[in-house]
Design a protein around this nucleic acid. Structure first.
Length: 491
RNA sequence: GGCCCGUUAGUCAAGUGGUCUAAGACACCGGCCUUUCACGCCGGUAACAGGGGUUCGAAUCCCCUACGGGUCACCA
Protein backbone atom coordinates (compact mmCIF):
# COMPACT_ATOMS: atom_id res chain seq x y z
CA UNK A 1 0.00 0.00 0.00
CA UNK A 2 1.10 3.55 -0.66
CA UNK A 3 1.96 5.86 2.13
CA UNK A 4 -1.07 6.18 4.38
CA UNK A 5 -2.49 9.64 4.91
CA UNK A 6 -5.48 10.22 7.15
CA UNK A 7 -7.11 13.34 8.44
CA UNK A 8 -9.30 14.57 11.24
CA UNK A 9 -11.37 17.49 10.02
CA UNK A 10 -13.48 19.07 12.75
CA UNK A 11 -15.60 22.13 12.21
CA UNK A 12 -14.82 24.76 14.84
CA UNK A 13 -18.38 25.28 16.01
CA UNK A 14 -18.12 23.96 19.53
CA UNK A 15 -15.79 22.05 21.74
CA UNK A 16 -14.33 18.67 21.02
CA UNK A 17 -16.79 16.06 22.27
CA UNK A 18 -15.86 12.50 22.99
CA UNK A 19 -17.22 11.24 19.69
CA UNK A 20 -14.94 13.58 17.79
CA UNK A 21 -12.09 12.75 20.10
CA UNK A 22 -12.51 9.07 19.39
CA UNK A 23 -12.60 9.68 15.65
CA UNK A 24 -9.39 11.66 15.98
CA UNK A 25 -7.89 8.90 18.09
CA UNK A 26 -8.72 6.16 15.60
CA UNK A 27 -7.26 8.18 12.76
CA UNK A 28 -4.18 8.95 14.78
CA UNK A 29 -3.69 5.35 15.89
CA UNK A 30 -4.18 4.10 12.36
CA UNK A 31 -1.57 6.54 11.07
CA UNK A 32 0.91 5.80 13.84
CA UNK A 33 0.50 2.06 13.63
CA UNK A 34 1.15 2.11 9.91
CA UNK A 35 3.84 4.73 9.84
CA UNK A 36 1.45 7.05 8.02
CA UNK A 37 0.70 10.73 8.25
CA UNK A 38 -1.96 12.24 10.49
CA UNK A 39 -3.35 15.51 9.21
CA UNK A 40 -5.49 18.00 11.07
CA UNK A 41 -7.70 20.17 8.94
CA UNK A 42 -10.18 22.77 10.08
CA UNK A 43 -13.40 22.58 8.11
CA UNK A 44 -14.59 26.11 8.72
CA UNK A 45 -16.63 26.97 5.66
CA UNK A 46 -19.61 27.89 7.79
CA UNK A 47 -18.49 31.41 8.62
CA UNK A 48 -21.60 32.15 10.60
CA UNK A 49 -20.96 29.44 13.13
CA UNK A 50 -17.21 29.04 13.09
CA UNK A 51 -15.39 30.47 16.05
CA UNK A 52 -11.74 31.10 16.61
CA UNK A 53 -12.22 30.12 20.21
CA UNK A 54 -13.58 26.71 19.26
CA UNK A 55 -10.64 26.11 17.01
CA UNK A 56 -8.20 26.90 19.79
CA UNK A 57 -10.17 24.70 22.16
CA UNK A 58 -10.06 21.76 19.78
CA UNK A 59 -6.32 22.09 19.21
CA UNK A 60 -5.61 22.26 22.89
CA UNK A 61 -7.92 19.34 23.66
CA UNK A 62 -6.12 17.21 21.08
CA UNK A 63 -2.76 18.18 22.51
CA UNK A 64 -3.95 17.47 26.02
CA UNK A 65 -4.95 13.99 24.87
CA UNK A 66 -1.50 13.52 23.43
CA UNK A 67 -2.61 13.41 19.81
CA UNK A 68 -0.15 15.39 17.74
CA UNK A 69 -0.50 16.07 14.05
CA UNK A 70 2.08 15.86 11.30
CA UNK A 71 0.44 18.45 9.11
CA UNK A 72 -2.10 21.06 10.08
CA UNK A 73 -2.65 24.36 11.86
CA UNK A 74 0.37 25.73 13.70
CA UNK A 75 2.69 23.07 12.34
CA UNK A 76 2.15 23.64 8.62
CA UNK A 77 2.98 21.11 5.95
CA UNK A 78 3.24 20.63 2.19
CA UNK A 79 -0.47 21.18 1.65
CA UNK A 80 -0.83 24.35 3.71
CA UNK A 81 -2.95 26.15 4.57
CA UNK A 82 -4.98 23.67 6.61
CA UNK A 83 -8.10 25.71 7.21
CA UNK A 84 -10.74 25.65 4.51
CA UNK A 85 -11.45 29.33 4.95
CA UNK A 86 -7.96 29.95 3.60
CA UNK A 87 -8.22 27.57 0.67
CA UNK A 88 -11.01 29.25 -1.27
CA UNK A 89 -9.11 29.58 -4.58
CA UNK A 90 -8.77 25.81 -4.71
CA UNK A 91 -12.51 25.27 -4.55
CA UNK A 92 -13.15 28.01 -7.07
CA UNK A 93 -10.85 26.34 -9.51
CA UNK A 94 -12.42 22.94 -9.03
CA UNK A 95 -15.91 24.41 -9.35
CA UNK A 96 -15.00 26.20 -12.57
CA UNK A 97 -13.68 22.96 -13.94
CA UNK A 98 -16.94 21.18 -13.22
CA UNK A 99 -19.01 23.94 -14.78
CA UNK A 100 -16.86 23.86 -17.89
CA UNK A 101 -17.30 20.13 -18.16
CA UNK A 102 -21.02 20.60 -17.81
CA UNK A 103 -21.10 18.58 -14.59
CA UNK A 104 -22.24 21.46 -12.45
CA UNK A 105 -24.71 24.25 -13.15
CA UNK A 106 -25.94 27.43 -11.52
CA UNK A 107 -29.18 27.33 -9.58
CA UNK A 108 -31.07 30.55 -8.98
CA UNK A 109 -33.60 29.32 -6.47
CA UNK A 110 -33.33 31.15 -3.17
CA UNK A 111 -33.05 29.33 0.15
CA UNK A 112 -36.50 30.66 1.01
CA UNK A 113 -38.06 29.24 -2.14
CA UNK A 114 -36.37 25.92 -1.56
CA UNK A 115 -37.49 25.76 2.03
CA UNK A 116 -41.03 26.50 0.98
CA UNK A 117 -41.02 23.75 -1.64
CA UNK A 118 -39.44 21.33 0.81
CA UNK A 119 -42.12 22.07 3.33
CA UNK A 120 -44.83 21.55 0.79
CA UNK A 121 -43.33 18.27 -0.37
CA UNK A 122 -43.25 17.03 3.19
CA UNK A 123 -46.88 17.96 3.70
CA UNK A 124 -47.86 16.12 0.57
CA UNK A 125 -45.84 13.13 1.65
CA UNK A 126 -43.32 13.43 -1.16
CA UNK A 127 -39.59 13.09 -0.78
CA UNK A 128 -38.19 16.58 -0.20
CA UNK A 129 -35.70 16.65 -3.01
CA UNK A 130 -34.60 19.41 -5.34
CA UNK A 131 -36.75 19.32 -8.44
CA UNK A 132 -34.01 20.17 -10.92
CA UNK A 133 -35.77 23.20 -12.30
CA UNK A 134 -32.54 25.13 -12.94
CA UNK A 135 -30.89 22.20 -14.64
CA UNK A 136 -31.74 23.16 -18.18
CA UNK A 137 -31.89 26.92 -18.02
CA UNK A 138 -30.90 28.63 -21.24
CA UNK A 139 -28.26 31.31 -21.33
CA UNK A 140 -30.99 33.93 -21.73
CA UNK A 141 -32.92 32.69 -18.76
CA UNK A 142 -29.78 32.79 -16.64
CA UNK A 143 -29.01 36.32 -17.64
CA UNK A 144 -32.53 37.35 -16.91
CA UNK A 145 -32.44 35.77 -13.46
CA UNK A 146 -29.16 37.47 -12.68
CA UNK A 147 -30.55 40.78 -13.77
CA UNK A 148 -33.23 40.27 -11.15
CA UNK A 149 -30.35 40.38 -8.72
CA UNK A 150 -30.24 36.67 -8.03
CA UNK A 151 -26.90 35.19 -7.06
CA UNK A 152 -26.66 31.56 -8.13
CA UNK A 153 -25.50 28.61 -6.12
CA UNK A 154 -23.78 25.80 -7.95
CA UNK A 155 -25.29 22.33 -8.09
CA UNK A 156 -23.72 19.06 -9.13
CA UNK A 157 -25.56 17.19 -11.87
CA UNK A 158 -26.40 13.73 -10.58
CA UNK A 159 -27.30 10.86 -12.93
CA UNK A 160 -31.04 10.10 -12.84
CA UNK A 161 -30.53 6.38 -12.97
CA UNK A 162 -28.14 3.79 -11.70
CA UNK A 163 -26.65 3.62 -8.26
CA UNK A 164 -23.59 4.75 -6.40
CA UNK A 165 -21.94 2.17 -4.22
CA UNK A 166 -19.94 3.08 -1.16
CA UNK A 167 -17.38 0.44 -0.33
CA UNK A 168 -17.26 0.86 3.38
CA UNK A 169 -14.37 -0.82 5.13
CA UNK A 170 -16.57 -2.18 7.90
CA UNK A 171 -19.85 -2.78 6.12
CA UNK A 172 -18.89 -3.80 2.64
CA UNK A 173 -20.78 -2.39 -0.33
CA UNK A 174 -23.62 -0.02 0.49
CA UNK A 175 -25.67 0.94 -2.53
CA UNK A 176 -27.60 4.18 -2.95
CA UNK A 177 -29.94 4.71 -5.87
CA UNK A 178 -28.90 7.84 -7.72
CA UNK A 179 -32.48 8.97 -8.00
CA UNK A 180 -32.64 9.59 -4.27
CA UNK A 181 -29.53 11.73 -4.45
CA UNK A 182 -30.75 15.05 -5.78
CA UNK A 183 -28.53 17.65 -7.45
CA UNK A 184 -26.96 19.02 -4.29
CA UNK A 185 -25.29 22.35 -3.82
CA UNK A 186 -21.52 22.38 -4.07
CA UNK A 187 -20.99 26.13 -3.90
CA UNK A 188 -23.29 28.40 -1.98
CA UNK A 189 -24.55 31.62 -3.54
CA UNK A 190 -22.03 33.57 -1.48
CA UNK A 191 -19.27 31.75 -3.31
CA UNK A 192 -18.31 29.57 -0.34
CA UNK A 193 -18.12 25.84 -1.03
CA UNK A 194 -20.48 23.49 0.78
CA UNK A 195 -19.11 20.69 2.92
CA UNK A 196 -19.64 17.84 0.49
CA UNK A 197 -17.59 19.69 -2.06
CA UNK A 198 -14.84 21.40 -0.08
CA UNK A 199 -14.13 18.29 1.86
CA UNK A 200 -13.67 16.23 -1.31
CA UNK A 201 -11.51 18.84 -3.04
CA UNK A 202 -9.27 18.89 0.04
CA UNK A 203 -9.18 15.15 0.55
CA UNK A 204 -8.11 14.79 -3.07
CA UNK A 205 -5.57 17.59 -2.93
CA UNK A 206 -4.13 16.39 0.36
CA UNK A 207 -3.96 12.87 -1.03
CA UNK A 208 -5.92 11.34 1.80
CA UNK A 209 -5.89 7.57 1.46
CA UNK A 210 -8.36 6.59 4.18
CA UNK A 211 -11.31 8.53 5.42
CA UNK A 212 -12.10 7.34 8.92
CA UNK A 213 -15.06 9.22 10.35
CA UNK A 214 -18.34 8.77 12.17
CA UNK A 215 -21.20 6.78 10.73
CA UNK A 216 -23.38 9.86 10.46
CA UNK A 217 -21.42 10.63 7.30
CA UNK A 218 -22.25 7.36 5.60
CA UNK A 219 -25.27 8.74 3.77
CA UNK A 220 -23.23 11.72 2.61
CA UNK A 221 -20.64 9.49 1.08
CA UNK A 222 -22.32 8.67 -2.23
CA UNK A 223 -22.53 12.41 -2.91
CA UNK A 224 -18.88 12.79 -2.18
CA UNK A 225 -18.03 9.85 -4.36
CA UNK A 226 -19.86 11.56 -7.20
CA UNK A 227 -17.71 14.63 -6.62
CA UNK A 228 -14.52 12.58 -6.63
CA UNK A 229 -15.63 11.06 -9.92
CA UNK A 230 -16.58 14.40 -11.44
CA UNK A 231 -13.16 15.68 -10.47
CA UNK A 232 -11.59 12.50 -11.84
CA UNK A 233 -9.77 11.84 -8.60
CA UNK A 234 -9.08 8.41 -7.11
CA UNK A 235 -11.33 7.33 -4.26
CA UNK A 236 -9.94 6.94 -0.78
CA UNK A 237 -10.94 4.03 1.43
CA UNK A 238 -14.02 4.90 3.47
CA UNK A 239 -14.36 3.57 6.99
CA UNK A 240 -17.36 4.75 8.96
CA UNK A 241 -16.96 4.03 12.63
CA UNK A 242 -20.11 3.55 14.68
CA UNK A 243 -21.46 6.44 16.69
CA UNK A 244 -21.08 7.05 20.38
CA UNK A 245 -24.50 7.55 21.92
CA UNK A 246 -25.57 9.16 25.17
CA UNK A 247 -26.83 6.89 27.98
CA UNK A 248 -30.42 7.37 26.77
CA UNK A 249 -29.42 6.08 23.32
CA UNK A 250 -29.82 9.46 21.71
CA UNK A 251 -27.21 11.53 19.98
CA UNK A 252 -24.76 13.27 22.28
CA UNK A 253 -25.73 16.78 23.32
CA UNK A 254 -25.22 19.27 26.11
CA UNK A 255 -28.06 17.97 28.20
CA UNK A 256 -26.19 14.72 28.77
CA UNK A 257 -23.77 16.14 31.27
CA UNK A 258 -20.11 15.95 30.48
CA UNK A 259 -19.58 15.15 26.83
CA UNK A 260 -16.61 17.28 25.89
CA UNK A 261 -12.99 16.48 26.44
CA UNK A 262 -12.64 19.77 28.26
CA UNK A 263 -15.33 18.84 30.78
CA UNK A 264 -13.77 15.49 31.52
CA UNK A 265 -10.46 17.21 32.05
CA UNK A 266 -12.05 19.67 34.46
CA UNK A 267 -13.66 16.85 36.38
CA UNK A 268 -10.28 15.37 37.06
CA UNK A 269 -9.91 12.69 34.44
CA UNK A 270 -6.46 11.96 33.06
CA UNK A 271 -5.75 12.04 29.34
CA UNK A 272 -4.31 8.52 29.54
CA UNK A 273 -7.57 7.25 30.99
CA UNK A 274 -9.80 9.03 28.53
CA UNK A 275 -7.72 7.75 25.63
CA UNK A 276 -7.76 4.22 26.95
CA UNK A 277 -11.50 4.30 27.50
CA UNK A 278 -12.28 5.84 24.12
CA UNK A 279 -10.13 3.27 22.36
CA UNK A 280 -12.23 0.53 23.94
CA UNK A 281 -15.41 2.13 22.66
CA UNK A 282 -15.70 0.55 19.25
CA UNK A 283 -12.36 -1.16 19.10
CA UNK A 284 -11.22 -4.17 21.07
CA UNK A 285 -7.78 -5.59 21.70
CA UNK A 286 -6.95 -9.14 20.79
CA UNK A 287 -5.78 -10.08 24.24
CA UNK A 288 -7.63 -9.70 27.52
CA UNK A 289 -5.70 -6.76 28.92
CA UNK A 290 -7.80 -3.65 28.70
CA UNK A 291 -5.47 -1.19 30.37
CA UNK A 292 -3.46 0.04 27.42
CA UNK A 293 -1.14 2.99 27.14
CA UNK A 294 -1.07 5.16 24.06
CA UNK A 295 2.05 3.42 22.79
CA UNK A 296 0.52 0.02 23.41
CA UNK A 297 -2.57 1.12 21.53
CA UNK A 298 -0.41 2.20 18.62
CA UNK A 299 1.18 -1.22 18.61
CA UNK A 300 -2.09 -3.13 18.70
CA UNK A 301 -4.52 -0.94 16.76
CA UNK A 302 -6.04 -2.15 13.53
CA UNK A 303 -9.18 -1.24 11.65
CA UNK A 304 -10.05 -4.92 11.45
CA UNK A 305 -10.88 -4.96 15.14
CA UNK A 306 -13.24 -2.00 15.04
CA UNK A 307 -16.86 -3.07 15.44
CA UNK A 308 -19.95 -1.75 13.75
CA UNK A 309 -22.47 -1.25 16.49
CA UNK A 310 -23.09 2.09 18.14
CA UNK A 311 -21.84 2.34 21.71
CA UNK A 312 -23.28 4.06 24.72
CA UNK A 313 -20.58 5.56 26.84
CA UNK A 314 -20.43 4.65 30.47
CA UNK A 315 -18.63 6.97 32.83
CA UNK A 316 -18.42 4.26 35.48
CA UNK A 317 -15.92 2.32 33.48
CA UNK A 318 -14.08 5.48 32.52
CA UNK A 319 -13.87 6.35 36.20
CA UNK A 320 -12.55 2.92 37.05
CA UNK A 321 -9.85 3.23 34.39
CA UNK A 322 -9.05 6.69 35.66
CA UNK A 323 -8.59 5.39 39.19
CA UNK A 324 -6.20 2.85 37.82
CA UNK A 325 -4.07 5.44 36.03
CA UNK A 326 -4.18 7.79 38.98
CA UNK A 327 -2.27 5.16 40.91
CA UNK A 328 0.02 4.04 38.15
CA UNK A 329 1.46 7.36 37.02
CA UNK A 330 4.53 8.87 38.66
CA UNK A 331 3.76 10.46 41.97
CA UNK A 332 5.30 13.71 40.78
CA UNK A 333 3.01 13.81 37.80
CA UNK A 334 0.01 13.06 39.98
CA UNK A 335 1.00 15.93 42.25
CA UNK A 336 1.41 18.27 39.34
CA UNK A 337 -2.00 17.32 37.99
CA UNK A 338 -3.69 17.50 41.39
CA UNK A 339 -2.45 20.95 42.36
CA UNK A 340 -4.89 22.90 40.15
CA UNK A 341 -7.72 21.01 41.79
CA UNK A 342 -6.42 21.82 45.26
CA UNK A 343 -6.12 25.44 44.22
CA UNK A 344 -9.62 25.51 42.84
CA UNK A 345 -10.90 24.52 46.28
CA UNK A 346 -8.72 27.17 47.91
CA UNK A 347 -6.73 24.57 49.82
CA UNK A 348 -3.35 25.74 48.58
CA UNK A 349 -2.18 29.11 47.29
CA UNK A 350 -1.30 29.97 43.69
CA UNK A 351 2.36 30.20 44.58
CA UNK A 352 3.50 27.08 46.33
CA UNK A 353 6.62 27.23 48.49
CA UNK A 354 8.92 24.26 48.49
CA UNK A 355 8.03 22.91 51.92
CA UNK A 356 4.36 22.97 51.07
CA UNK A 357 5.15 21.12 47.87
CA UNK A 358 6.80 18.38 49.90
CA UNK A 359 3.73 18.24 52.11
CA UNK A 360 1.34 18.07 49.15
CA UNK A 361 3.36 15.24 47.73
CA UNK A 362 2.87 13.20 50.89
CA UNK A 363 -0.85 13.94 50.95
CA UNK A 364 -1.36 12.95 47.33
CA UNK A 365 0.63 9.80 47.89
CA UNK A 366 -1.72 8.47 50.55
CA UNK A 367 -4.96 9.88 49.21
CA UNK A 368 -4.74 8.93 45.54
CA UNK A 369 -4.96 5.20 46.18
CA UNK A 370 -8.51 5.47 47.44
CA UNK A 371 -10.05 7.92 44.98
CA UNK A 372 -10.67 7.80 41.27
CA UNK A 373 -10.31 11.34 39.98
CA UNK A 374 -8.17 14.40 40.59
CA UNK A 375 -11.22 16.28 41.81
CA UNK A 376 -11.76 13.55 44.38
CA UNK A 377 -8.19 13.97 45.57
CA UNK A 378 -9.03 17.53 46.47
CA UNK A 379 -12.32 16.53 48.08
CA UNK A 380 -10.70 13.80 50.11
CA UNK A 381 -7.77 15.79 51.43
CA UNK A 382 -9.18 19.10 52.62
CA UNK A 383 -8.47 18.37 56.31
CA UNK A 384 -4.77 18.14 55.57
CA UNK A 385 -4.80 21.79 54.60
CA UNK A 386 -7.51 23.19 56.81
CA UNK A 387 -7.49 22.80 60.60
CA UNK A 388 -10.98 24.11 60.89
CA UNK A 389 -12.93 21.09 59.70
CA UNK A 390 -16.14 19.74 61.19
CA UNK A 391 -16.80 16.21 62.42
CA UNK A 392 -18.92 13.94 60.33
CA UNK A 393 -22.27 13.50 62.04
CA UNK A 394 -22.58 9.77 61.80
CA UNK A 395 -19.00 9.43 62.96
CA UNK A 396 -19.74 11.49 66.04
CA UNK A 397 -22.62 9.20 66.87
CA UNK A 398 -20.57 6.13 66.35
CA UNK A 399 -17.25 7.06 67.89
CA UNK A 400 -17.54 10.19 70.00
CA UNK A 401 -20.61 9.30 71.99
CA UNK A 402 -19.15 6.19 73.47
CA UNK A 403 -18.41 5.98 77.16
CA UNK A 404 -14.86 7.04 78.01
CA UNK A 405 -13.78 8.14 74.56
CA UNK A 406 -12.50 11.48 75.76
CA UNK A 407 -10.15 10.01 78.27
CA UNK A 408 -9.08 7.41 75.75
CA UNK A 409 -8.10 10.12 73.31
CA UNK A 410 -6.43 12.05 76.08
CA UNK A 411 -4.38 9.04 77.02
CA UNK A 412 -3.46 8.53 73.42
CA UNK A 413 -2.37 12.12 73.18
CA UNK A 414 -0.15 11.77 76.20
CA UNK A 415 1.41 8.66 74.77
CA UNK A 416 2.17 10.36 71.47
CA UNK A 417 3.48 13.42 73.23
CA UNK A 418 6.14 11.29 74.84
CA UNK A 419 7.42 9.98 71.52
CA UNK A 420 10.85 11.15 70.50
CA UNK A 421 10.56 10.08 66.92
CA UNK A 422 7.19 10.42 65.32
CA UNK A 423 6.97 7.99 62.43
CA UNK A 424 4.81 5.13 61.17
CA UNK A 425 6.44 2.55 63.44
CA UNK A 426 6.55 4.55 66.66
CA UNK A 427 3.02 5.90 66.42
CA UNK A 428 1.52 2.54 65.63
CA UNK A 429 3.52 0.88 68.38
CA UNK A 430 2.32 3.48 70.84
CA UNK A 431 -1.27 2.78 69.91
CA UNK A 432 -0.89 -0.98 70.01
CA UNK A 433 0.72 -0.84 73.41
CA UNK A 434 -1.85 1.52 74.76
CA UNK A 435 -4.76 -0.62 73.63
CA UNK A 436 -3.18 -3.67 75.16
CA UNK A 437 -2.52 -1.95 78.46
CA UNK A 438 -6.01 -0.59 78.67
CA UNK A 439 -7.52 -3.84 77.54
CA UNK A 440 -9.42 -2.34 74.64
CA UNK A 441 -9.38 -3.25 71.00
CA UNK A 442 -7.04 -1.20 68.83
CA UNK A 443 -10.01 -0.17 66.73
CA UNK A 444 -11.62 1.43 69.76
CA UNK A 445 -8.88 4.02 69.82
CA UNK A 446 -8.11 4.13 66.16
CA UNK A 447 -11.61 5.01 64.96
CA UNK A 448 -12.18 7.96 67.29
CA UNK A 449 -8.68 9.16 66.55
CA UNK A 450 -9.36 9.13 62.84
CA UNK A 451 -12.42 11.22 63.42
CA UNK A 452 -10.46 13.58 65.66
CA UNK A 453 -7.71 14.05 63.11
CA UNK A 454 -9.72 14.22 59.92
CA UNK A 455 -13.35 14.71 60.85
CA UNK A 456 -14.09 11.62 58.82
CA UNK A 457 -14.66 7.93 59.30
CA UNK A 458 -12.78 6.89 56.23
CA UNK A 459 -9.54 7.82 54.60
CA UNK A 460 -5.88 6.91 54.46
CA UNK A 461 -4.24 4.73 57.09
CA UNK A 462 -4.47 6.46 60.46
CA UNK A 463 -0.76 6.48 61.10
CA UNK A 464 -0.13 7.90 57.67
CA UNK A 465 -2.40 10.78 58.58
CA UNK A 466 -0.63 11.33 61.88
CA UNK A 467 2.82 11.35 60.43
CA UNK A 468 1.89 13.68 57.62
CA UNK A 469 0.19 16.10 60.01
CA UNK A 470 3.13 15.89 62.35
CA UNK A 471 3.25 15.54 66.09
CA UNK A 472 2.18 19.03 66.96
CA UNK A 473 -0.91 19.18 64.80
CA UNK A 474 -1.88 15.66 65.78
CA UNK A 475 -1.81 16.58 69.45
CA UNK A 476 -3.75 19.78 68.82
CA UNK A 477 -6.46 17.93 66.98
CA UNK A 478 -6.66 15.31 69.67
CA UNK A 479 -7.13 18.01 72.27
CA UNK A 480 -9.72 19.76 70.20
CA UNK A 481 -11.66 16.50 69.95
CA UNK A 482 -11.44 15.89 73.69
CA UNK A 483 -12.91 19.31 74.35
CA UNK A 484 -15.58 18.74 71.76
CA UNK A 485 -16.60 15.43 73.32
CA UNK A 486 -16.66 16.80 76.87
CA UNK A 487 -18.76 19.67 75.63
CA UNK A 488 -21.09 17.21 73.99
CA UNK A 489 -21.53 15.28 77.21
CA UNK A 490 -22.18 18.31 79.42
CA UNK A 491 -24.85 19.73 77.17
C1' G B 1 -42.18 9.56 5.83
C1' G B 2 -38.06 7.93 1.88
C1' C B 3 -33.16 6.02 1.89
C1' C B 4 -29.08 3.82 4.72
C1' C B 5 -26.85 1.29 8.93
C1' G B 6 -27.26 -1.61 13.15
C1' U B 7 -29.37 -5.34 17.12
C1' U B 8 -24.66 -10.83 22.15
C1' A B 9 -25.93 -9.53 29.96
C1' G B 10 -27.46 -2.73 32.96
C1' U B 11 -22.89 -0.88 29.92
C1' C B 12 -18.39 -1.93 26.81
C1' A B 13 -17.33 -6.20 24.19
C1' A B 14 -15.00 -11.43 22.20
C1' G B 15 -17.09 -14.53 18.78
C1' U B 16 -16.37 -14.75 10.94
C1' G B 17 -21.04 -22.58 10.49
C1' G B 18 -19.18 -27.49 14.79
C1' U B 19 -14.01 -26.45 20.14
C1' C B 20 -20.39 -21.74 22.52
C1' U B 21 -23.76 -26.21 28.22
C1' A B 22 -21.24 -18.01 24.67
C1' A B 23 -14.88 -15.17 26.77
C1' G B 24 -13.19 -10.85 29.23
C1' A B 25 -13.99 -5.84 31.48
C1' C B 26 -17.05 -2.08 34.22
C1' A B 27 -21.24 -2.02 37.40
C1' C B 28 -23.88 -5.09 40.96
C1' C B 29 -23.95 -9.09 44.97
C1' G B 30 -21.11 -12.33 48.29
C1' G B 31 -16.30 -13.73 50.68
C1' C B 32 -11.02 -13.01 51.99
C1' C B 33 -7.45 -9.21 53.47
C1' U B 34 -7.84 -5.06 56.99
C1' U B 35 -7.72 0.42 61.89
C1' U B 36 -11.84 2.79 58.19
C1' C B 37 -12.42 3.58 52.94
C1' A B 38 -10.29 2.03 48.66
C1' C B 39 -6.84 -1.34 46.31
C1' G B 40 -5.90 -6.46 45.64
C1' C B 41 -7.51 -11.59 45.51
C1' C B 42 -11.50 -15.42 45.21
C1' G B 43 -16.56 -16.47 43.87
C1' G B 44 -21.64 -15.26 42.00
C1' U B 45 -26.11 -13.11 39.26
C1' A B 46 -26.83 -11.69 34.22
C1' A B 47 -26.95 -11.97 27.09
C1' C B 48 -27.16 -14.27 21.23
C1' A B 49 -34.42 -8.91 19.82
C1' G B 50 -38.69 -12.16 17.71
C1' G B 51 -40.31 -15.36 13.75
C1' G B 52 -39.37 -18.14 9.48
C1' G B 53 -35.87 -20.57 6.34
C1' U B 54 -30.74 -22.84 4.49
C1' U B 55 -27.69 -26.80 6.74
C1' C B 56 -26.19 -33.09 9.50
C1' G B 57 -25.25 -28.63 12.55
C1' A B 58 -26.42 -21.41 13.26
C1' A B 59 -24.90 -16.11 17.84
C1' U B 60 -22.46 -16.82 13.11
C1' C B 61 -25.68 -17.39 6.18
C1' C B 62 -30.76 -15.69 3.87
C1' C B 63 -35.79 -13.47 4.44
C1' C B 64 -39.60 -10.99 7.29
C1' U B 65 -41.09 -8.27 11.66
C1' A B 66 -39.89 -5.28 15.77
C1' C B 67 -36.77 -1.92 17.99
C1' G B 68 -32.63 1.61 17.92
C1' G B 69 -29.61 4.99 15.27
C1' G B 70 -28.11 7.99 11.07
C1' U B 71 -29.40 10.99 6.92
C1' C B 72 -32.60 13.64 3.71
C1' A B 73 -29.88 22.08 4.57
C1' C B 74 -26.98 27.60 0.32
C1' C B 75 -24.51 22.88 8.65
C1' A B 76 -20.35 20.20 8.90
Amino acid sequence: MNHIRVRFAPSPTGNLHIGGARTALFNWLFARHNGGTFILRIDDTDFARSMEESKRGILSALRWLGLDWDEGPEVGGPHAPYAQSERLPLYEKAARELVEKGLAYPCYCTPEELAERRKQAMEEGRAPRYDGRCRHLSQQERIKLEQEGRRPALRLRIPDTGETVVHDFFRGGVAFANEVLDDFIIVKSNGIPAYNFASVVDDAEMQITHIIRAEEHLSNTPRQILVFQALEKPLPVFAHVPMILAPDRSKLSKRHGATSVEEFRDQGYLPDALINYLALLGWSPEGEEEILSLSELVRQFSLERVGKTAAIYDTKKLTWINGHYLNEIDLDRAVELAIPFLQKKGLVPEEIPEDLMVYIRKVVEVVRTRVKTLAEIADASDYFFDDDFTYEEKGVKKHFQKEGVASLLQAAGQRLAGLETFDLETTEEAYRNLSEELGVKAGDIIHPTRLALSGRTMGPGLFDIMVILGKERTLERLERAVKYIRNLQSS
